[in-house]
Design a binder for these strands. Structure first.
Length: 492
DNA sequence: GAGTTTGAAACT
DNA sequence: CAGTTTCAAACTC
């Protein structure tokens, strides 16, 4: 068929079109629209021509026709053909022996039926917006994230080339994908390198960045949750399903769901100011800080407790009857019957099993805690603190001074947590200001804005580099530096 | 623009 | 369902 001699129009509501879901073939994106493809910290190469998004903004300029196919052997009646796969007639394509035209509707319908026979979902959109998996936000206008229904199966492209359907669609790979050596995930330095290549607005530089990353010049991101080294390992105890990282889920679980997806701004996906700021390493650091703070507090108070235990053993204060009463009263305390000071004099020497925590675990510290604290204790006893936490708090520790000691201990731990959270909050504020500054700087040519934008850019350059307060940016923080939020011990 | 690479689709 | 082939787009030179 001669090029330009074909129609590429929406079928006039043929039966197949009625059955088909709206197709979403790769579509060139107007430059103005591409300009909108960036978020506060992530921009997409301007030369990128992603698959038509699910929510397409109305362009001021007439929407361009999809690009013409070049099919030679498929007669444009198989899914190889983009037009056919999109449910469109060929129009102005460069295809040969095209059967995807109005005058060939009968054969076309047969091809459609045949295709649907093989795969009933063949004409359904590959990219769909799925709601965030973070349950707590589902009712709060949680952002919907585009996701590839089938997922890609890339092996060599690292999912960083347009061979990859996910990459082409401007979305991150998900658990649906079965790709190998994937680098198309949140936090991927390789992906960041490509996106930052957008600053050069140079196609070659962008692809060069992709090649560099694929060749390992930059190396693995080092992110703990990177799927790169975990895929296709049958021996993985977590099983094949766990081999693939679901960006949306991981991000959600870490509160970073706003980072997911690098689709166009037209979708207005929420992006946290902490995007690219709170890293998995930060979470680990926070956990480490809490554990360290807890242990330090324990060590400090344990000495006092030991002394008191020795004193009480010498005195022989308690009788068996007392112990029985203690158990009774402890249970009452658990139910809030007896006031705290009253119990404090009876709680020592009890067995660990005397008290049951709200979550079913024995509770070493009888002191009533806030629901949040209780939840933390329930969660942490089995994980971060584990048996170490329990052995660090012998039953003898709970004497009449226990409430005071526990208060001090909790204060120490929470102080450390507070200090760390302050650092995180500061980062978020800086990022939020950066985003606002960048936007205003783009819209205005005020020197102050430009200066701010430049400074902000400097603060956020480099993959995974956190945005820190300006003074922190100016002076690199060495490990262990008290001002380094990633390495300092806030409890100190 | 020709040749190569890549991964989805189709086929076995 | 896994392996292979076909196909067209993406990519390289």
């Amino acid at each position: 068929m001669e090029p330009g001699n074909q129609q590429q129009v929406q079928p006039p509501a043929p039966p197949a079109a009625q059955l088909m879901a709206p197709p979403h073939p790769p579509q060139p994106r107007p430059v103005a629209q591409v300009h909108a493809v960036f978020s506060s910290t992530r921009q997409w190469p301007m030369s990128f021509t992603p698959i038509k998004p699910m929510v397409e903004i109305k362009s001021v300029t007439p929407p361009k026709r999809k690009k013409q196919c070049n099919c030679k052997n498929s007669h444009c009646l198989k899914l190889y053909c983009e037009c056919f796969a999109a449910g469109l007639y060929c129009d102005g394509c460069n295809c040969k022996q095209c059967g995807n035209k109005v005058e060939n509707e009968h054969a076309r319908q047969e091809a459609i039926n045949s295709t649907k026979l093989r795969n009933p979902k063949a004409f359904q959109p590959k990219i769909e917006n799925v709601p965030s998996t973070l349950s707590v936000r589902k009712d709060a206008g949680a952002p919907s994230l585009p996701k590839h229904n089938k997922g890609c199966h890339c092996k060599k492209s690292g999912c960083l080339k347009k061979y990859c359907e996910c990459f082409q669609a401007n979305i991150l790979c998900s658990k649906n994908c079965k790709c190998m050596d994937c680098k198309n995930f949140e936090g991927s330095e390789e992906l960041q390198a490509i996106i930052q290549g957008d600053n050069a607005s140079d196609k070659n530089s962008i692809q060069q960045a992709a090649n560099v990353t694929l060749n390992g010049a930059i190396g693995s991101s080092g992110y703990k949750y990177s799927p790169v080294r975990r895929k296709r390992h049958p021996e993985d105890p977590l099983g094949p399903e766990a081999n693939h990282f679901d960006a949306s889920q991981v991000a959600s679980s870490s509160g970073l769901e706003g980072c997911i997806g690098y689709q166009s701004r037209s979708k207005m996906v929420y992006r946290s100011p902490l995007a690219n700021t709170v890293h998995p390493t930060d979470v680990n650091d926070l956990a480490n800080h809490l554990v360290i703070a807890c242990r330090k507090a324990t060590e400090a108070f344990l000495t006092i407790a030991d002394n008191k235990v020795e004193m009480e053993v010498e005195r022989g204060i308690h009788t068996n009857a007392d112990l029985n009463n203690d158990s009774m009263k402890n249970r009452e305390v658990q139910n809030g019957v007896i006031s705290q000071p009253d119990v404090a004099t009876h709680i020592d020497q009890r067995t660990a099993g005397d008290l049951e925590s709200p979550c079913g675990n024995t509770q070493e510290d009888y002191r009533p805690a806030s629901p949040g604290t209780q939840a933390l204790l329930c969660d942490e006893q089995g994980t971060a603190f584990g048996s170490d936490y329990r052995t660090s708090f012998p039953a003898a520790f709970h004497d009449q001074d226990t409430p005071k000691l526990s208060v001090l201990q909790e204060k120490t731990v929470l102080t450390g947590l507070r200090e760390y959270l302050r650092v995180i909050i500061t980062r978020g504020k800086i990022n939020a200001n950066n985003s606002a500054g960048m936007t205003e700087a783009n819209a205005s040519s005020e020197p102050a804005m430009e200066l701010d934008a430049r400074r902000n850019h400097g603060a956020t350059t480099g993959p995974g580099v956190s945005s820190l307060p300006s003074e922190a940016v100016e002076r690199p923080k060495a490990p262990g530096d008290p001002e380094n939020p990633r390495t300092s011990d806030p409890s100190a």
